[in-house]
Amino acid sequence: MKILVCIKQIPDMESKFKINAEGDWFNETDVSFWMNEYDEYAVEQSIQLKEQLGNEPDVTVLSIGPDRVVESIKKALAMGCDRGVHIKDDEAFRKDPAQIASIIYEFAKDKGFDIIFTGMQSQDRGSAQVGVLLAEMLGYSCVTTVVNFAYDNGVINAKRELEGGIKSLVKTKTPAVITCQLGLNTPRYPTLPNIMKAKKKELITLNVADLLKQEAVAKTEKFYYPEKKGVGMVIEGDLAAMVDQLISVLKEKTTVVK
């Protein structure tokens, strides 16, 4: 069995974002990046499936982005993926989801992957498109927002999370794309021996220019800070003074604190 996992690197959401010179995204200086949370579940699920099948499956982890994404690929290798593919693209942040999906498609189309795991969405853009688009391009079946995954002999039974505590149970066959939702599993931490082992694993670098066949269908025209709506009160400074100030506000503005 051949498995592909797609991962994206995303910025620390606690950063102070400064708008770049082109005005279409943020300036990366002083921003830390790590693996999209949803994709950690995707990586973990691929490794659990590999283990379930007696280590037979071959797991490739792929990421499109600048050189920094290799860090996240290495983490996935240390978690247990077999091979990394870095599709080098310094302009990945300007690509729309259809382009990202088509780049992955060009890579994957003749490789015969049985199952492809992606995150349900990327935390920075939240488009929730790449996995589904990729499945459509490949003609694979696709189940999104998966919180429970079971595989047996070419058949996948999955639970999709809907709103308000409801799940839908669906069944499909490979080849399939599965988009992973938070809570699907408990992503493992790479151990030191596995980090060492990962250094010897194959890491392929490809150039995006060789795989990009699709023109952009959407373009960011403006990128800006949201208008501050509720001009709520901000309390800052000395700890004891902040505590006192909050308590007096609560006494004044609510009926439940006396």
Binding site: F17, D124, G126
Partner: peptide, 27 residues
Amino acid sequence: AQLSEVVNIVDGGFELSCLNGKMRRIV
């Protein structure tokens, strides 16, 4: 083209929220 999770229409443009609500884009 698909635009996901549009939050507003601003001067005829589609506004999207990104970076966990910290920034907005017109796409």
